[in-house]
Amino acid sequence: MTPVRVDDPDDPRLADYRALEALGHRPDPHHFIAESELVVERLLRSTWPVASVLTTASHCERLVPALATRPEVPVYVADQAVLRAAVGFNFHRGVAAIGLRPPVLRWNDMSPGTSLKNVPEDMLSEPCARPTYTVLLAQGLSDPANVGAIVRAARAFGVDLLLLDRAGADPLSRRAIRAAAGNVFAQASAGVGDLVAAVERLRRAGATVYAATPGPRSRPLGAVVRPARCVILVGSEGQGLPATLRAVSDEEVAIPMRPGVDSLGVAAATAILLYALAGAQGPGL
């Protein structure tokens, strides 16, 4: 890995970074932007393809161990002013990287090869072959910060597979990646078009499905005994889980709360559900 000095923000090698601000508002079907030293380091240490890294000299020095693991990745070093001009706004984080999306997380790509109605069979087959697993399915989440927080919680509590509604927010948007603190690069995740079919596939493989909803049929979370194969469904911030997903669940579960509080918000509620149901694994959990 030999960093290349760049002094011109219009250098053609920085063309992808000039689209950074636009990528914050609409998904690019093939690329994403990772920002901040922590997030870029986690990307570099993952197995995900990286197109390039753009950084200041000081950040580059601190990233040397991570960069050394990816000698094939071009590294461009520039002053803060050049970096700011290249990305198009007052960029304070000092380091960014362009990553390549895996096909299972290609939002807004409707080409035949990536217009996935369901999770690829091999991603479902792997957890289904285990005696114990946890799958989390998040439906209709419109806020990328909530999606990122749920990715982070899934990683923290040992979720084997996170399924995300392709109609929801992009998990590889800038805001979602920041909220996930880069954990999206280590968490097994995929976008789903037909959520009901995915849940039914898991049920046929022996999973018990819990729908998180405060409805009258719900049992309190503390009364639920975690099964070996567990699927947890969480719904959109405003509407909650639709009837079609509740209908294919085995049981509805709710977090008991004091009167007058209607919800915790989907990210906080999901973290509590995972702590209770994903199972404590490892020292201190």
Rank of each mutant, 00 (worst) to 15 (best):
T2H: 13
R5H: 12
R5A: 15
D8F: 05
P12C: 09
Y17M: 01
L20M: 15
A22N: 02
A22E: 10
G24Q: 05
H25A: 07
I33P: 04
E37C: 00
L38F: 05
V40F: 08
L43M: 08
W48D: 02
P49C: 03
L54N: 03
R62E: 10
T69V: 07
E72R: 09
E72A: 15
V73A: 06
D79F: 01
A81S: 14
V87R: 11
F89H: 13
H92W: 11
R93Y: 13
G99Q: 09
R106V: 00
D109E: 04
T114A: 07
T114N: 07
L116A: 14
K117S: 12
N118V: 01
P120E: 10
A129C: 07
T132W: 01
Y133H: 11
L136S: 09
G140P: 08
G140N: 11
A145E: 13
V147K: 04
D160K: 06
L161D: 08
L172F: 15
I177E: 06
I177N: 05
I177C: 10
A179R: 06
A181D: 10
A186W: 14
A188W: 00
A188N: 13
A188G: 03
S189W: 00
G193D: 03
E200Q: 15
R203I: 01
T213L: 04
T213M: 04
P214V: 03
G215H: 10
R217E: 14
P220F: 06
G222Y: 13
V224Q: 12
P227Y: 11
G238R: 15
Q239F: 14
P242Q: 11
R246E: 14
I255E: 09
P256W: 10
P256D: 11
M257G: 13
R258N: 04
P259C: 02
D262G: 08
D262E: 15
S263Q: 03
V266A: 13
A269F: 04
A271E: 04
L274Q: 10
Y275D: 12
Y275M: 08
A276E: 15
L277Q: 09
A278N: 04
A280C: 11
G282Q: 09
G282V: 06
P283I: 02
G284R: 11
L285Q: 12
